[in-house]
């Protein structure tokens, strides 16, 4: 079983320029921008489940990321 981050497209405000989770995720090429939809998404196979993205997204009151068991 894996523990990974998941981004709720409705709550993500990347269209307003937010890049917090992309900035601070320790893993490279792990949270990416969907340039068409203008939302961030997680490449699950690269996620180590550290939850730092949840911390920064919640601190900015966007609350768009939750952790999931897979």
């Amino acid at each position: 079983m894996y523990y990974v981050a998941e981004i709720n497209e409705e709550a993500c405000v990347a269209n307003k320029g937010c890049r917090l989770c992309i900035m601070y995720c320790p893993e490279a090429n792990c949270i990416m921008m969907n340039d068409e939809k203008k939302v961030a998404f997680v490449v699950e196979s690269r996620c180590k489940g550290c939850e730092l993205c949840v911390v920064v997204c919640d601190a900015a009151k966007h609350k768009a990321i939750t952790m999931q068991d897979r």
Partner: peptide
């Protein structure tokens, strides 16, 4: 970052 491939994997 986020829109290009990073030089670290």
């Amino acid at each position: 970052v986020g829109s290009s491939t990073e030089l670290i994997a």
